[in-house]
């Protein structure tokens, strides 16, 4: 890390590398023991079926610098950590779903709570950084899942990514890594999806 004080943690999914294996979303759901129908992370395929334009990428909360969810929340339950991670307080949240309307990525999730399909409180990616409760307490684990950041670990989705398409870390570092990857395309690095030529030969 170059300058830890000004670091802003971001996700970036390299669409040249993502093979749409869904490892990240499964890892996320398993690590945080998410209930069914809650998908903090999701792999989507853009331009599906259009030759040459199709690509996949993994989407969750993008931890926006000017997070619109934080701006519209009527209970002000969002807070942005110094390192840029956008978190929210489930004890304050009323489940109005305004954050979902403001979010450009469809990140906020709502469990169906009990009868009359009343929406429960919002759940979203925490970049494995827990919530406002005491770090690594039972309550934090129950409400927000693991707090891997506090343990010095990489968020589980990026750690599990088999092609290292999903990057996470200081935005400057991430952009350096991605720039290096782009520059090396056509210079000995693989231009086809990772592993394709090994498996099927480079001619196809």
């Amino acid at each position: 890390m170059s300058d830890i004080g000004n670091a802003r943690l971001k996700f970036y999914c390299d669409e040249h590398r993502c093979i749409s294996c869904d490892g990240c979303s499964v890892a996320c759901a398993e690590a945080h023991e998410l209930p069914a129908n809650i998908n903090r992370r999701k792999v989507v395929t853009m331009n599906e079926g259009i030759f040459g334009l199709e690509y996949s990428l993994s989407i969750a909360c993008m931890h926006c610098t000017d997070a619109p969810c934080e701006q519209v929340c009527p209970t002000d339950c969002f807070y942005i950590r110094e390192d840029g991670i956008v978190l929210h307080d489930k004890d304050k949240c009323i489940g109005c779903a305004y954050c979902l309307y403001a979010c450009p990525f469809g990140a906020p999730q709502f469990p169906q709570d009990g009868a009359f399909s009343i929406k429960g409180v919002m759940d979203k990616c925490t970049m494995c950084a827990g919530g406002p409760e005491e770090t690594n307490s039972d309550k934090e684990r129950e409400l927000y899942g693991q707090n891997r950041i506090a343990e010095g670990k990489v968020p589980v989705c990026a750690a599990m990514c088999s092609t290292k398409a999903l990057l996470v870390g200081d935005s400057a570092e991430i952009s350096d890594i991605y720039r290096e990857r782009v520059l090396s395309i056509g210079h000995g690095a693989k231009t086809q999806p990772y592993g394709w030529s090994t498996a099927y030969g480079s001619k196809i």
Binding site: T75, D76, K92, C93
Partner: peptide, 22 residues
Amino acid sequence: IMMFATTFGGGEFVRICKDIHA
């Protein structure tokens, strides 16, 4: 109360109001 939920501190009270509203 939902519009001024911050003033009421959010949480259970506002959640009940939301359900009454519905």
